[in-house]
């Protein structure tokens, strides 16, 4: 019972080149609110692209458009055929009342894998994910981390050309997160174009490209180094909450405070520091907020 188109799909009308998937200036209006505003994303074969942003930034909407769950109101989506997409929706996307093996069998059957292929692929992935022993357990009885791993390997089962993962590590303990990242990195190393959404910026630093979203708009895009290099002004670290107007450009990180000084502004007390990706994205969000409030030009 299969029958989706087998060729690459664009929405609408542009031809997708193999291995170069993504979105071109897509917009989505959701319940009267602009959920995505002309967002462009590139997903390159063999590369991992991270979509970062806070809650409600539009990460899930973007990934849903890319995977084909939602059609954008405008713009183009370039993606391979349904048979060549692996998708993990928010949550594990697995059937809690099926066993681990049954979940994988269903996926393999729906994608038309032969039973020999299915056995080989699922055996390999279960081994890599450390789920071999849980093969006959119900997915609903697995721990959160194990269930997420199952969701990820289910998405990878058919060796997709585009792997779209919506927050695969959210709510997962550090050990399981590390295991999941190993699986995902392997998929990219095997030539798959991987796009994942995450709220963890330390994770995003491992990606080849990062797209930061805020309220449905692009905040920053490029490699982590490019995003860091593009931070305007300077950044300093202070011990306590800064006084006066500095406070609106400050945030707490670890046991200290970061203060951002925009270009052409006087720098206050504190130790100058080199920003990392987390600082860069925070500065970008802060700058946008201040611009909207009229406090920054």
């Amino acid at each position: 019972m299969t029958g989706r188109p087998v060729g690459p799909v664009t929405s609408p009308g542009t031809r997708a080149d193999a291995g170069d998937w993504g979105t071109d200036e897509i917009s989505v209006l959701y319940q009267g609110r602009l959920a995505l505003d002309k967002i462009t994303l590139r997903a390159v074969a063999g590369q991992l692209t991270a979509v970062v942003g806070g809650d409600g930034a539009g990460k899930t909407t973007l990934l849903r458009c890319l995977a084909g769950v939602l059609a954008p109101g405008s713009g183009h989506v370039r993606r391979p055929s349904a048979r060549q997409i692996g998708y993990l929706s928010a949550g594990s996307g697995t059937y809690p009342d099926l066993t681990v093996q049954e979940n994988l069998d269903f996926r393999a059957s729906a994608y038309g894998l032969s039973s020999a292929q299915a056995r080989e692929q699922s055996g390999d992935l279960l081994g890599r994910a450390g789920l071999d022993a849980a093969r006959d357990r119900l997915a609903g009885q697995l721990s959160g981390g194990m269930r997420q791993k199952l969701g990820v390997i289910a998405a990878m089962l058919t060796s997709p050309r585009l792997l779209v993962l919506d927050e695969p590590t959210t709510g997962v303990d550090p050990v399981s997160r590390s295991g999941l990242w190993w699986l995902i990195a392997r998929a990219a190393a095997d030539g798959c174009a991987v796009v994942l959404a995450t709220t963890y910026l330390d994770e995003a630093e491992r990606a080849a490209a990062v797209l930061a979203l805020d309220d449905g708009r692009e905040l920053a895009a490029g490699t982590p180094d490019q995003i860091i290099a593009a931070v305007p002004g300077t950044l300093r670290s202070v011990a306590g909450r800064p006084p006066g107007s500095d406070e609106q450009r400050a945030w707490r990180r670890g046991g200290r405070w970061r203060v951002w000084d925009p270009p052409q502004s006087a720098s206050g007390a504190g130790q100058p520091i080199q920003p990392d990706l987390q600082d860069a994205v925070t500065v970008a969000a802060l700058a946008r907020e201040l611009r909207l409030a009229g406090s920054l030009r």
């Binding site: 989706r4 849903r64 769950v69």
Partner: peptide, 13 residues
Amino acid sequence: SGTLEQLAVMPLR
């Protein structure tokens, strides 16, 4: 359970 969304992207009519 969120699996309907998975079905939507599977190569199933």
